[in-house]
Every structure is written in structure tokens, then in C-alpha cells.
Nucleic acid binder design. Structure first.
Lengths: 240, 240
DNA sequence: ACCTGAACACCGTTCAAGT
DNA sequence: ACCTGAACACCGTTCAAGT
């Protein structure tokens, strides 16, 4: 999935000024480069130096477009949410709760695809315009339920909080492993299951009760299980 | 709210050499020191060097007790959950869902007290024993609802995911401010509300619909609003 | 068994200077 | 307006050496 290095091969080219000695960026190219690095090596791999190298320029030029590493992460995450926004633009045909579910699931899938997203999406709506629009979009569907403003506010925040929270949790690599490729997520989950199995059943009746469900479970099913509880509660509230 | 340092004052008293030239730690004192720093300056402030200085020793000695900074954060967070475990030991008198609500709220309050907790609590049950026990405890109450193992697994994970997700979100400082004390959380929220108010009402009908609720809202109420939706859905499932 | 000082290999960020 | 190289002030982690 890595993009080609975009190697600037010196001051080549026959005629024309095009010296190439000086790199030229834009906010879009900076964020696109950041997203590439994030996809390849996670948040830890996104250093300003690595980004500058990928862009073929010096470190300091990044700071022309972005105030620092934190803002870079926020904006890179937010830029990706444009895709979720687009993918959910048409949602709205039927049952409001069904529509909310569809949007939430699209968000979840986007974060599963890019685990680093969970920690930086929807963090600061004053700088993250797409995050704000996504919040707005979910909220508009919740409004269709004719609750009070307060209920509408709480329900929308709960859905967003649940999605981000659950997805961020899943996106977290086990203590230093996955990125370096030493341990796959499957191996890690299997070892966790084994460790649970070794626990004393008298001390951990619940863990043993759900062990077979945990072992080899599908993250998406787990996410949907909780989401549907939340939405069932919401439907109940909407019915009065 | 920080616990007392639990200062181990060396191979104490009687007489003896007491040179003080050599520091002496323990895993407990290392974690206690880490928690102090986290309470004072957040995760960003917890550097190995700052911790070593607080302990009165050299940097390298920290690595005798902990494999690295990540594990330090995980263990420090988990050590604090011992308090939540203790505080919820007696819960269990009445309605299972009411009990789940009580435990979830206690967790939430603990994270509000220590915003750094949200990002590191319940991350890795193989190294975080208290996290595992808390998960177990909530699960035991869910078991009382007589659902299928799969439903029990999903419901417990959903509650934990919602608590951690929501609390972690609230615990996030606005882009570089709060820790340094430049901008208070109140000021930040007020400015966010002002910015929302400035949005075009045609483009953001939902935001305007909930603006008065958002402005000056209480985080705890918001948390409970969503939690009660989730629990209502769970109750419905238990009755079904 | 546990602690230390010093070193290594990085970081984010700034700034005077260039174009 | 935008880019650069070099410097500053940090980091986490390791390791040979001490006790």
C-alpha cells in the first residue's frame, strides 16, 4: 500500500527553469503524506522528520502549514473523515435509527481500516471541520426522533462516544508489537484467550462464562452488539 | 486526589550507615511516583527522567521495575483502578442493571478525577490485573440477567467501551493548553460554544438545535444520558 | 539483586538566512 | 510567501560498571 517514493532525482529535466532544488508543498500534500505514513507505521511512525523526507524537503517547512505535530495528527485524521462523509451522504431513506446505525457502522469500518484514526478523530471540532460535519449529520438523524434538545444532544454524543471509544480500543496495538510486525493481532488475541483460560474459574466466573465467545470473536459483531443495545434504548426513548 | 507517596524511607532507623548515596525503590514506589507526576502534569509530563528525579535516583534504575515507558503507563493506570475495585466491592444489593450503573459511574468519576486514566485503563488485561478484575466484576452483574454467553460478552464489553470511550474523550485536553494552564477547560468550552453559534444555521441545524444544551452542560449528566440509553437497551434484551 | 553515569540515537521546534 | 540547514533542548533506552 505504500505510495511510490516520489523520489526527486536531482536537477534533471532538459530545459525550463524547473530547478527542483526547492520543494513545494501545500496543506493537502502535507496531510496526504502524513496519512500515508500513518497507514504504514501508525502514529508512532509519524515524525516530522519522516514526513519532511517523504515530501522531499526540510523539516521546518512542515511548520508553515501546521502549528506542530498535534495539529498535524488532528488535521490528518480529519481529512480522512471526508471519505466517511461522502460515503454516508445518501443515507436517509428510511427509519432514522436504521440510518444512524448505518453511519455509525461506516465510521467504525473506517477506523478499523486505519487504527490510528480512533485516537484523533472527533477530538476538536474547532479545528476539525469534517468531524463537526459528521457529528452534525448523525445529529440530524437523531433530530428526526422528535426528542427534547437535551435528549437529542445526549443521544448523539453517546453514539459518537461509543463508536470512537470502541474503535479506539480495538485500534490499540498490544504493548509494542503489531507495528513492528513481531506479533500479529491474531496471535495476541489467542495468547490473551489462553491466559484467560488459565485463570481460576472460582475467581473469574464471568471470564470463563464468555471465554468461548471471546476466543476468535469478530470485532465487528462485538461492536454491533453494543451499538444495537444503545439504539434499542434510544428507540424506546423515542416511543415515549 | 493523589494518593500519599508511600515513601519507603530506606533500611530505616536504628543507627547504621544511612549514606543516602544509593537510592532504593520498589515497584510500588515507582508506580506511586508515576501516578503523582501523572496527576500533576498528565501523560506528557511523565518522562523517565522526571520520574527518576522524583525518586531520587538515576534513570536506568526505573528499567529494573518496568520494561519501558509504555508498561509504566499501563501499570500506573492499573494501580489506580485498585481504588475503583475497592469502592465497588460492596455493590450488588439490588437490581443488576442498577448495580452495573453504579460501577460504571464510579469508573467514570475516577477518570474525571484523573483524565490521563482514560487512555491507559483497561488496555491490556494480560498485564493489567485490576483492569481484568473490574471487567470481571461488571461481567458478573451482567451474568445475573441470564442472557446467552454471547449477549453477556457483548453487553459487558459495550458498557466498558462506553465508559472508557466517553471518559477518555472528556479527559482529552484541548490542543495544547490545559496542562500549561494557559486556557481553562471552561474557557475552551465557552469558545467552542461561541464558534458553534457562529455557524450558519442552515448548514448546521442540529448544532443550533442543541447549542443551549451544549453550552454549560455537565459532563456527568451527558455521560449518564448515554449510559441510561445503553442500559435501557440491555434491560429490554433481558426481558425479551 | 539492584543501582549509577554516561553515552547513543533519536525526537519536536525554532530561527536566521535564503529565494 | 514559502523553503532551508543547522542548532537547541529535550527525549527513551542501553550498558558497562559499580555496590
Amino acid at each position: 500500500m505504500a505510495s511510490t517514493p516520489q523520489q526527486s532525482d536531482g536537477p534533471v529535466r532538459p530545459r525550463g527553469p524547473r530547478t527542483r532544488s526547492r520543494a513545494s508543498h501545500s496543506l493537502e500534500s502535507v496531510l496526504a503524506g502524513a496519512v500515508e505514513i500513518l497507514d504504514e507505521s501508525g502514529a508512532q511512525g509519524l515524525t516530522i522528520r519522516a514526513l519532511a523526507t517523504r515530501l522531499g524537503g526540510g523539516v521546518a517547512s512542515v511548520y508553515w502549514y501546521v502549528s506542530g505535530r498535534d495539529e498535524l495528527l488532528d488535521l490528518a485524521a480529519d481529512s480522512v473523515l471526508a471519505g466517511v462523509l461522502e460515503a454516508t451522504a445518501d443515507v436517509g431513506g428510511g427509519d432514522p435509527i436504521e440510518d444512524i446505525r448505518t453511519i455509525a457502522l461506516t465510521m467504525f469500518d473506517a477506523i478499523v481500516d486505519r487504527p490510528w484514526l480512533g485516537a484523533y478523530a472527533l477530538r476538536d471540532t474547532t479545528s476539525q471541520i469534517h468531524s463537526l460535519q459528521l457529528y452534525e449529520r448523525i445529529g440530524e438523524h437523531v433530530m428526526r426522533l422528535d426528542l427534547t434538545p437535551r435528549q437529542t444532544f445526549h443521544a448523539t454524543s453517546a453514539v459518537v462516544g461509543y463508536v470512537i471509544g470502541t474503535a479506539a480500543d480495538l485500534g490499540q496495538e498490544p504493548p509494542a508489537a503489531v507495528v513492528s510486525g513481531e506479533v500479529s493481532r491474531e496471535e495476541y488475541m489467542a495468547s490473551a484467550a489462553a491466559q484467560w483460560r488459565a485463570l481460576d474459574a472460582a475467581d473469574f466466573p464471568f471470564i470463563h462464562h464468555i471465554l468461548d465467545e471471546f476466543d476468535g470473536h469478530d470485532d465487528r459483531d462485538q461492536f454491533l452488539g453494543g451499538l444495537d443495545l444503545l439504539l434499542a434504548g434510544l428507540r424506546l426513548q423515542a416511543q415515549g
